[in-house]
Design a protein around this nucleic acid. Structure first.
Length: 853
RNA sequence: GCCUAGAUGGUGAAAUAGGUAAACACGCAGGACUUAAAAUCCUGUAAUUCAAUUAAUGAAUUUUGCGGGUUCGAUUCCCGCUCUAGGCACCA
């Protein structure tokens, strides 16, 4: 008889609806807060990279629940951000409608993964009840400064009091006062670069750009400086670094964070020339610089601009802009400086460092000569037009500590994000008071989604309301927050989601404390985790939370990779170039565009007809090819932006939820990347069917376990527990199979063995376990059952030893626990051997006896 | 370019603190059942060589991306490479 998963899963889904699993251990003092990073709800739906995380955390939660913990395992959606806005522009629908639809679909899909879901505790970052508090945190940052002495954020009022003691302060006008305060505020205004598309007249994200051109349309991009909100995370870097010691994270993630913060002790050297200063950071205290100096294009180029004629100035800036995002190495400037021994030092500005945020300057070592070998690319430009000859290295060499991480840009020139709760009065920023939050994002029907375009976007300071722009009204900030604003702190809100007065109540925080196990993709290791830790530390300073770190333990979910396909468009032309022909074109003139794999035939050939049919905008394009039009095929992370998503729905339809859950855990270790492949699911499908058939043809005995059975079952529990402890779920599934292979031969079986098997198995495959649980005459859901305890008497009774001669295995022997002593074992086995010949005896407890001749 | 990981049979993978490499599966091959197929069950399955062949089997060597090192012993530790993936600040 085949296992009819459709019928059984439907039945148990309904029954489970009536049980609130999160209240099972309501009175327990032990708690377990497990959390997945919340996803972005894209229109493509949940993919197998998401579901693997949900299933994983659900298995752990179901296990912990029956160990007696009170469980919190919520879900949420990080729903502000670019893709919805892009989709809105394309289709004319409002992003909110798109997001709502997506979320509905996501929840439907998550429900279909067999997980315990608390529908009352869901976070949606674009909900004004939620982003009210995101705005509140922004205001708190705005009204705080960092007291370096106490190493703590404090209210700006305290700073003003201090400043008032200085006589000058009162004399300053408001503008000047604001300028000074801006230097202290934890969120502050500063100019920084954005990707500006002159043709589209918008700022574009890095994702929308390839080779310095916009992917959509293929227009040029330039770097443009704009006034932006920044978060002064640099004040917290020392604390973020020091507190790493409290984290139970894996070494590589901790290392990655450390490097990303990038604390370095360096020496500061200033070089003075006839045109200005260059600052150099070097590792060793040296007065002579022999090597070549390379500067990142982001370095303060004003140094060069001072003595340059206007005519060339513009050209210079253009060339600097070009250097950003260029993939090829290009060198812009070569000047001839002399060090104090009158030897030449060359200075280059180069995109040799793709990381444009590299601090200042790099001194080239001889090793990295390939930089200079690319002489073909040198553009000698500036040295033609001005002379820098006299230079001097100033004598003072200062020790300094620098960090890799800079203050974070916190504003976006977009519509679909949290509005920044700031209005401007005579160009001075003021925050909207807490009472009047949320500052709601206005509705727009226009296709160009920008707060700038909205007429009703000014603040009435008397009525505290949004009003129409006019001469007398105060304009609201036209930027929105970046998408990580809302995801910085959601882990707190889940604890107390419905609280209208506070972010989180003291009482609830005291119980749930912080996240016990946080799960997320490795791509978030640097960004999200660091920003969240920063946010938590700030909230601690202002006494909203009370612990040191937000995530006690973090495990990173290995990325799911899959085949992605892309085609290349020739810049300025309505032309696509087949992948085998792109060698003939300059790299910089090509724009890479991802396409869905439904247009692919024969490995990596494009079905042009179908592609044009479904993508109207490319109707008039020419496809240059030899025989077939080929695409670039790569294996990359599964993501909506790469259009290589696999949706679990069809798999679940074919094999059922239980099989899918088991399969996703079986395909490999959770924290390692894996290429998606569905072939192996048959093995799991067989396994589930075998279990079903076995339970349906049984003679069950109601007797106590004998000695052998006790050993078997206790070791089994031990193994499963151990695997769960170290999160090796793929191995625990193997152990289920092994155990089942052992018991399936018996036609008469004791009920206790079956019960234990099902209780442990139900965390992985809940529905079949419930059905079989009732089949063997239980009357209450299996999830009310406690995880069986191990009887240590039956574990590791005999210890396995390897007997080796000259490192070659001769025999395997077992020693009883009581006799597991070096002397006893050596004596026992040396009797058999001629002792004169022995060179060395190597004995390792619980492992090996190796005799060398 | 910089940073962080990874690489084990035909495939997914396992191997606790350096101690039997390849557990558990998929696939494949052969067999049983069946008119047939599916399903199920059984057997074999890292490679090479040798011995043996009615059958069962036995023995040796090599093997964890490549090249070194430490060690009685390395998939595991160290050094140097290669390739792949992720991150590099406006994808989330």
């Amino acid at each position: 008889m085949k296992y009819n998963f459709k019928k059984i899963e439907k039945k148990w889904k309904l029954k489970h609806k009536k049980i609130n699993f999160f209240k099972i251990n309501k009175k327990s003092k032990k708690k377990f807060y497990i959390l997945n990073m919340i996803p972005y709800p894209s229109g493509y739906g949940l993919h197998v990279g998401h579901s693997i995380g949900y299933i994983f955390s659900d298995i752990i939660a179901k296990y912990k629940l029956r160990c007696g913990y009170k469980i919190l395992n919520p879900i949420g959606f990080d729903s502000f951000g670019l893709p919805a806005e892009q989709f809105a522009i394309k289709t004319g629908k409002h992003p909110e409608i798109i997001i709502k639809k997506s979320i509905k679909n996501y929840i439907k899909q998550i429900k279909n993964l067999g997980i315990f879901l608390d529908l009352k505790n869901i976070i949606n970052t674009c909900n004004s009840n939620y982003y009210k508090w995101t705005q509140y945190i922004f205001i708190k940052l705005f009204n705080s400064w960092y007291d370096n002495k106490n190493k703590k954020a404090k209210n700006i009022k305290i700073l003003i009091k201090k400043l008032k003691k200085e006589k000058k302060w009162e004399k300053y006008n408001n503008k000047k006062k604001n300028k000074i305060l801006n230097k202290y505020r934890l969120v502050f205004l500063k100019k920084s670069f954005v990707n500006w598309c002159p043709y589209l007249k918008t700022v574009l994200s890095n994702d929308e750009i390839y080779n310095n051109k916009s992917i959509r349309g293929g227009y040029k991009i330039i770097k443009k400086k704009m006034l932006q909100w920044h978060i002064r995370i640099t004040k917290y870097l020392d604390r973020l670094l020091n507190d790493i010691k409290y984290l139970k994270w894996s070494k590589n993630i901790i290392n990655s964070q450390k490097k990303w913060i990038g604390k370095k002790k360096v020496f500061l050297i200033k070089i003075k020339s006839n045109v200005g200063y260059i600052k150099l950071y070097i590792k060793k205290k040296k007065k002579n610089i022999k090597n070549i100096i390379i500067m990142a294009p982001s370095y303060n180029i004003n140094f060069f601009l001072k003595n340059i004629k206007k005519k060339y100035k513009n050209e210079f800036i253009k060339k600097i802009n070009k250097l950003y995002n260029n993939e090829e190495i290009k060198i812009l400037i070569k000047t001839n400086l002399l060090n104090n021994k009158n030897k030449k030092i060359n200075i280059y500005i180069s995109n040799y460092f793709k990381n444009k945020y590299i601090k200042g300057v790099y001194i080239l070592k001889k090793k990295n000569n390939n930089f200079l070998n690319k002489k073909n690319n040198l553009i000698y430009f500036l040295n033609k037009h001005f002379n820098i000859k006299k230079i001097k290295i100033l004598k003072k060499i200062k020790k300094k500590i620098i960090f890799n991480l800079n203050d974070i840009v916190f504003s976006r020139q977009r519509y679909w994000g949290e509005p920044i709760p700031i209005y401007y009065k005579y160009n001075i920023p003021f925050n909207i008071k807490k009472k009047y939050l949320p500052l709601k994002l206005p509705n727009i029907n226009n296709k160009i989604l920008k707060l700038k375009n909205i007429n009703k976007w000014a603040w009435d300071i008397k009525k505290n309301k949004i009003i129409n722009k006019s001469k007398n009204s105060y304009l609201l900030d036209i930027n929105t927050m970046p998408s990580f604003a809302g995801s910085n702190w959601y882990y707190l809100r889940f604890i107390d989601n419905k609280n209208k007065k506070k972010i989180i109540s003291n009482k609830k925080e005291k119980f749930w404390k912080t996240v016990d196990l946080y799960i997320g993709g490795s791509e978030h290791i640097n960004g999200h985790l660091l920003y969240s830790r920063f946010c938590y530390k700030f909230l601690k300073d202002i006494k909203i939370v009370n612990f040191k770190e937000p995530f006690k333990k973090f495990i990173n979910q290995g990325l799911i990779l899959y085949y992605s396909f892309s085609i290349f468009r020739l810049y300025k032309y309505k032309k696509f170039i087949s992948y085998d022909l792109i060698k003939n074109y300059k790299k910089n003139n090509l724009i890479k565009i991802y396409i869905k794999n439904e247009f692919i035939i024969n490995k990596n050939e494009l079905n042009i007809k179908l592609f044009i049919k479904k993508n109207n905008e490319y109707k008039k394009f020419f496809f240059k090819k030899k025989k077939e039009f080929l695409c670039l095929m790569k294996i990359e992370k599964m993501s909506k932006s790469k259009l290589n998503i696999i949706n679990p729905n069809s798999i679940i339809k074919k094999y059922g939820i239980d099989v899918f859950r088991l399969y996703q855990m079986f395909i490999g270790p959770f924290n390692k990347k894996k290429i998606w492949n569905i072939e192996k699911i048959k093995g799991i499908y067989k396994f589930i069917n075998k279990i079903w058939n076995y339970f349906n043809n049984l003679n069950i005995i109601n007797k106590k376990l004998n000695y052998k059975e006790n050993i078997l079952i206790n070791n089994f529990i031990y193994k499963i527990n151990n695997n769960l402890k170290f999160f090796n779920l793929n191995v625990s599934i193997s152990n289920f199979m092994k155990f089942f292979n052992k018991i399936k031969k018996k036609k008469k079986i004791k009920i206790k063995i079956l019960k234990i098997f099902l209780i442990l198995f139900s965390s992985f495959s809940p529905y079949i376990s419930e059905e079989l649980w009732f089949l063997i005459k239980n009357k209450k859901s299996i999830f009310f059952e406690k995880i069986p305890k191990i009887n240590k008497e039956f574990i590791n009774l005999k210890i396995k030893y390897l007997l080796m001669f000259n490192n070659k295995l001769k025999n395997v022997f077992y020693i009883k626990k009581e006799k597991n002593k070096k002397k006893y074992i050596i004596n026992k086995y040396l009797k058999k051997i001629n002792k004169k010949k022995i060179k060395k005896i190597i004995f390792k407890k619980n492992k090996i006896l190796n005799i060398l001749f």
